[in-house]
Amino acid sequence: MPTAHVTTLRPAAGGLQDVRACEECVVAMEEEQAEAARGRGCTHEYGRLAADA
C-alpha cells in the first residue's frame, strides 16, 4: 500500500523514525486537525499535519 511521509521523529534515545500514513489516513488526520483548529477559532493549513500537531 502506498504511503506518504508525515514527519520524522527524533527520539531522545537517538536515531530517526519516519512516520508514514496511507492516503485515507492522511485525509482523516487533516480533517481532524481542521476541526480542532476551528474549535480554537483558528484556521488549518492543509499539508502541514506535522507542523500543526
Rank of each mutant, 00 (worst) to 15 (best):
M1L: 08
M1N: 08
M1D: 13
P2M: 06
P2A: 15
P2D: 10
T3C: 05
T3F: 11
A4E: 14
A4I: 03
A4L: 10
H5G: 02
H5T: 02
H5E: 02
H5C: 09
H5K: 12
V6Y: 01
V6M: 10
V6I: 11
T7H: 02
T7W: 04
T7K: 08
T7P: 00
T8H: 06
T8G: 13
T8Y: 06
T8A: 11
L9D: 13
L9S: 03
L9I: 06
L9C: 06
L9N: 05
L9Y: 12
L9P: 04
R10A: 05
R10L: 03
R10G: 00
P11M: 04
P11Q: 10
P11R: 06
P11N: 07
A12N: 04
A12I: 06
A13I: 13
A13C: 13
A13V: 07
A13R: 13
G14I: 09
G14L: 00
G14C: 03
G14Q: 05
G14T: 05
G14N: 04
G14E: 07
G15T: 08
G15W: 04
L16R: 12
L16A: 14
L16C: 02
L16F: 08
Q17S: 14
D18N: 12
D18Y: 05
D18R: 13
V19F: 06
V19Q: 01
R20K: 08
A21T: 03
A21N: 03
A21G: 06
C22M: 07
C22H: 08
E23P: 04
E23Q: 14
E23N: 10
E24L: 06
C25G: 05
C25Y: 07
V26Y: 01
V27C: 02
V27N: 04
A28K: 08
A28N: 07
A28L: 14
M29I: 02
M29S: 00
E30M: 01
E30P: 02
E32C: 11
E32N: 03
E32W: 04
E32M: 10
E32T: 10
Q33I: 03
Q33Y: 02
Q33G: 03
Q33E: 15
Q33H: 13
A34Q: 05
A34S: 14
E35D: 14
A36Y: 06
A36W: 12
A36N: 14
A37D: 04
A37S: 10
R38D: 09
R38L: 07
R38G: 04
R38M: 09
G39E: 12
R40N: 11
R40E: 15
G41D: 03
G41Y: 12
G41W: 14
G41Q: 11
C42W: 09
C42F: 09
C42P: 00
C42E: 15
T43I: 11
H44V: 04
H44P: 00
H44T: 00
H44W: 14
Y46C: 01
Y46T: 11
Y46V: 11
Y46P: 07
G47S: 09
G47R: 07
G47F: 10
R48P: 00
R48Y: 13
R48H: 15
R48V: 06
L49N: 02
L49C: 02
L49Y: 03
L49H: 03
L49M: 03
A50T: 09
A50G: 15
A50Q: 01
A50H: 01
A51I: 10
A51Q: 11
A51G: 09
A51F: 14
D52G: 01
D52C: 08
D52K: 02
D52Y: 10
A53V: 15
A53P: 00
A53D: 12
A53G: 13
A53E: 13
A53I: 12
